[in-house]
Each structure stands twice: as C-alpha cells, then as structure tokens.
C-alpha cells in the first residue's frame, strides 16, 4: 500500500466508523420485530453512517470538487431521510399494518378512534 498523508488517514478512520454504523443499521433491519422498529434502527444508523462516509470523503480529498459535492450531499441526506421516514410510518399506521406483540401502548390509535375521521 502506498503511503498516506495525515488527513487521508483521518478520513479513512471516519469512513470506517460510518461503515460500522451502516452495518448495525442493516442488522437492525433484519432482526427487529415489526416495521416501526425496523424503520427506527435503519433510518438512524444508515443516515448517520452514510453522512459519516461523506464527511470522511471530504476530509480525505480536501477542498476539491469531490469534497464540495460530498458536503452538499450530506446536507441533502440529513434533510430528506427523516421526512421520508415519517411519511412511511404514517402511511403504514393508516393502512392498518399491525404492531408487534411486545407493544404496550398506542395513543395514536386511541385518538384516531375518538375523533370522527374526515373524508379526503
């Protein structure tokens, strides 16, 4: 392996952290019991992991076109991924997908049953 500069070593370390968290998120997608828990684990870990990889790429390559595009892409990810997560969660709850057996409380369903639902 060719020798690396100091910022490149730090970039590789941050990239490795990002890949580790990506892996944990995917493991959560496989192991957790129902769709809401999967959504939590997967959204948090994979968003943070991919943002970590992009920041690592920025530190690795410095102030070059690759670095600027990586920063722009990080902002896009951090803004869009929570929005799509709660769109999917609300849609799954409204279309009647059941929660897991371990669930102990659901105030959202109680409030939706109390109020008359308006027609869309």
């Amino acid at each position: 392996m060719h020798s690396l500069a100091f910022n490149q070593i730090i970039g590789y370390v941050i990239i490795c952290f990002g890949i580790l968290f990506d892996f944990f998120g995917v493991l959560g997608l496989l192991r957790l019991p129902d769709v809401y828990n999967r959504l939590q684990a997967a959204t948090k870990c994979v968003t943070f992991g991919s943002a970590g990889i992009l920041i690592g790429v920025f530190i690795y390559s410095g102030f070059t076109p690759t670095g600027f595009k990586a920063i722009l892409c990080t902002v896009f990810i951090l803004l869009t991924s929570p929005v799509s997560a709660h769109a999917i969660a609300k849609a799954a709850h409204n279309s009647g997908i059941e929660m897991a057996e371990e669930t102990i409380v659901d105030h959202y369903l109680e409030d939706m049953n109390n109020e008359p639902t308006e027609d869309k």
């Binding site: 959560g28 192991r31 684990a41 371990e102």
Partner: peptide, 26 residues
C-alpha cells in the same frame, strides 16, 4: 444526540434478547 442515538441502536441490535418495549406516546 445523533452519536448517542447510534450507540443506543447498536446496543439494542447486538444484544441477543432484543430489549425492546415499543409504543406510541403523545
């Protein structure tokens, strides 16, 4: 807070018995 969240999720996912007690609150 994001860093803390990731370590929390990693702990839950790696644990053999999956310590979850989910619910929707106000």
């Amino acid at each position: 807070e994001m860093l803390k969240a990731n370590f929390h999720v990693a702990y839950i996912v790696v644990h053999p018995k999956l310590p979850v007690k989910p619910g929707i609150v106000r």
